[in-house]
């Protein structure tokens, strides 16, 4: 977390309520934003703002953010949620299903919008994609399905690799689902697989050291908000052990990951605005289907490939949506 972001967020948090009070005369929607860190001016928040603008909403005029940070401590989520409820927010926006599930018991009837949901049906956040039925809705990522494709792509890049490490953040609801998908796929492609856990960025280096000791040929990072946010640090750790790394977010590839095949979660935030729009217009979250992604991006970091001494096959490069030189 950069100091500048922090200060900006702080200003945002402080300024938002007063702004809201100033706008009290008209109906001003209050959007609760529950984040691991105060990041009200982060890229994603900006994408969300863009989405809102496209739909005709003006921040500060007819909607405001009410931001709370749980500081990566899931146990703090209910407390933060309560605060948001007390602040009379119309909707609570969270990034992951994990947080949504933690907030749900406290939030009561207040709709919860998940920007990046792995598999809401299987983790019990929704009855079905078409009819979530509860208070949680949002945008699904199809992370497990995409992860299998990542294994195949890794196999194309490293035809001789045998040992595949999987790095996951234990406790996230998505991790078992991803493992369920990846393990058979990896085995079918001739990989020996081992799962490595890490709970905090501080453990990255140690984890990669362990992988090297296991002589892993490559690593696939399972989707997690923590990894997403700590992409550079993760990439740095991978670089120290010269480990090809595949991941689920294009931001991580930009930070130094070898490649990623995933949805563009910036789009998730932008489209999240359409959900907010509908909910504010009275549609029940239970009636709003979880949207599944249709566009998947293959991003390849050639710089990292060169550092690793890996040659990316031309076919793959041709199919890549973005190549980072």
């Amino acid at each position: 977390m950069r100091r500048r972001d922090f200060i900006a967020a702080l200003i945002g948090v402080v300024a938002a309520p007063s702004l809201a009070r100033a706008q009290q005369s008209g109906k001003v929607a209050r959007l609760g934003l529950l984040l691991p860190f105060p990041a009200v001016n982060s890229d994603f928040a900006q994408y969300f703002r863009g989405g809102m603008r496209e739909l005709g909403w003006e921040e500060g005029k007819n909607w405001v953010f009410e931001t709370r940070a749980y500081w990566r401590d899931l146990s703090a989520v209910p407390g933060c949620t309560e605060e948001l409820i007390r602040a009379k927010v119309d909707i609570i926006i969270v990034v992951t299903l994990q947080v949504a599930l933690a907030a749900r018991p406290v939030a009561g009837d207040t709709p919860i919008l998940v920007a990046v949901a792995g598999d809401p049906v299987r983790v019990g956040a929704a009855e079905s994609l078409a009819h979530p039925g509860g208070t949680i809705t949002g945008l699904a990522t199809m992370s497990p399905e995409l992860a299998t494709r990542r294994v195949q792509q890794l196999r194309e890049i490293l035809p001789g690799a045998t040992r595949l490490a999987l790095l996951g953040e234990p406790g996230t609801p998505l991790m078992p689902l991803m493992l369920d998908a990846i393990l058979p796929a990896a085995r079918s492609l001739g990989f020996v697989v081992r799962v490595f856990d890490v709970r905090a960025p501080e453990g990255f280096k140690a984890s990669f050291e362990t992988m090297r000791q296991w002589s892993a040929d490559a690593v696939i990072v399972l989707d997690s908000e923590m990894f997403w946010r700590n992409g550079p640090r993760l990439a740095a750790a991978a670089t120290t052990v010269n480990m090809p790394m595949a991941c689920g977010f294009r931001e991580m590839t930009r930070a130094g990951c070898l490649f990623s095949y995933a949805t563009n979660i910036r789009e998730h935030f932008r489209r999240g605005a359409t959900y907010v729009d509908k909910i504010l217009k009275g549609v029940k979250p239970g009636d709003l289907p979880f949207e599944q992604p249709t566009r998947f991006e293959l991003i390849i970091n050639l710089k990292t490939a060169r550092q690793l001494g890996v040659t990316i096959p031309d076919t793959l490069l041709t199919l890549a949506d973005e190549v980072i030189e």
Partner: peptide, 12 residues
């Protein structure tokens, strides 16, 4: 006979 199947969200 199915010779080939490619998918966006799964393995070939």
């Amino acid at each position: 006979k199915e010779r080939l199947r490619v998918s966006r969200i799964g393995m070939d």
